[in-house]
Computed example of a mutant assay.
Amino acid sequence: MVPKTHAYDALNDFFKAHENIVVEIEILPSALVSDDTLLLQDGINIGITKKVLAQAYLKARTVFFLQDGSSPSEALAFEATRIMLLFDSEHLTAANFRKRRLVSVQNEATGASANSLVAAAQQELQFLNSILTSPLHRQSKSPTLWHHRYWLFSNILLNGTPSSSFNVLNVSAIKAEFDAVFKAGEQHPKNYYAWQYARRLIDILVSALRKPKDQSSQVQIDIQAIINASSMRVKDWCLRHPSDTSGWSFLLFMLRYVDALPTRTDIVSNVLDLTIAFRWQHESLWVFVRTVLSNSAILVDGQDLFVERLYKYENQRDSYTAPASAALRWIETNKTADP
């Protein structure tokens, strides 16, 4: 059996050496790794067996509970939480310890020392990216880790310090957040917790739009432009994963906040075009189609034109058009002007 200390040291050293970048972690079958091998590393990618990870976790847990509450060794406890959360993504005590440490840094960061908070927040974001977007089936759908990410974004990244704040309501920052959601959605299909995080992200953007305009109108316009552009990216992701009901549900949610009617129309048109062209049968896709085509508040005057296109497709009367027939019956029964 691999000594717990060796397993812990190897994994902890890897995390410390790459704390400022996103790494990829994969759990390997024991049959692929010799008994005396701790990690398989290829650049910023590592593979570790469940047995070695379990040994590292046992050591990390010992380190954490010995050091927790002792300020001189707080750094050791903080390091241990990375391995604890990698092994057990629902370890609330470890996640809350990381929150407390970031709050402590935030409270002490003023003026020139605000850079320390920037560095700590960015390292935390990279750590979360590494776990949430790696091919780790359970971790990528962890409600604890996604809630921790939301807490980090809304309490640290968004608010910054009393004297200054991070500018995270911009194109590149929001794009990075959606990139994490997209990748996590690929690692764990129908990833409800990842898409729920995306909903809360949109809520933050919408709240920023509704605040009193104490900033320039250009800032307000930019936030709405971010929402509109993000909706197109979500649509593209959904079309690459047409069976993912969580993605379609989020796209439907997001359409309510797209202020440009041409953008909403283009999204629906593109989805309907490809659905018909490829004769897709995915139930989650057809739920999206029937819901959006029954809602005149989304398409305004263009609703009837889309329904007519669907009738033309249904008239082909083959086995592939059965979902269209069911969708049309649903639309006739549930037409509404409310979102």
Rank of each mutant, 00 (worst) to 15 (best):
L92I: 11
L92Y: 08
T93W: 04
T93M: 04
T93R: 12
A94P: 07
A94L: 08
A94V: 07
A95H: 06
A95D: 04
F97D: 05
F97H: 12
R98Q: 12
R98S: 06
R98E: 05
R101P: 02
R101Q: 13
R101S: 07
L102P: 10
L102A: 11
L102E: 10
V103L: 10
V103C: 03
V103K: 13
S104Q: 12
V105K: 09
V105A: 11
N107T: 03
A109D: 10
T110L: 13
T110Q: 12
G111E: 14
A112P: 09
A112S: 14
S113V: 14
S113C: 11
A114Q: 14
A114S: 15
N115P: 08
S116T: 13
S116Y: 10
L117K: 15
L117E: 15
V118K: 15
A120C: 13
A121T: 14
A121E: 10
Q122K: 15
Q122Y: 14
E124K: 08
E124P: 02
L125F: 14
Q126D: 10
Q126A: 13
Q126G: 05
F127Y: 09
F127N: 06
L128I: 13
L128S: 04
N129E: 12
N129R: 15
N129A: 10
N129K: 14
N129V: 09
S130C: 05
S130Q: 03
S130D: 02
S130G: 03
I131W: 00
I131N: 00
I131A: 01
S134Q: 03
P135Y: 01
L136M: 01
L136C: 01
H137C: 01
H137L: 06
H137S: 06
R138Y: 02
R138I: 00
R138W: 00
Q139L: 00
S140C: 03
S140H: 00
K141A: 12
K141R: 13
P143H: 10
P143K: 08
P143E: 05
T144I: 14
T144C: 15
L145S: 01
H147F: 07
H148V: 00
H148F: 05
R149L: 14
R149A: 07
R149Y: 10
Y150V: 02
Y150P: 01
W151Q: 07
W151G: 04
W151T: 08
W151M: 11
L152C: 07
L152Q: 08
L152G: 09
L152E: 08
F153M: 11
F153N: 04
F153E: 03
S154N: 09
S154V: 03
N155I: 02
N155H: 10
N155M: 04
N155A: 09
N155L: 02
I156T: 09
I156V: 14
I156S: 08
L157C: 11
L157W: 01
L157N: 00
L158F: 07
L158T: 02
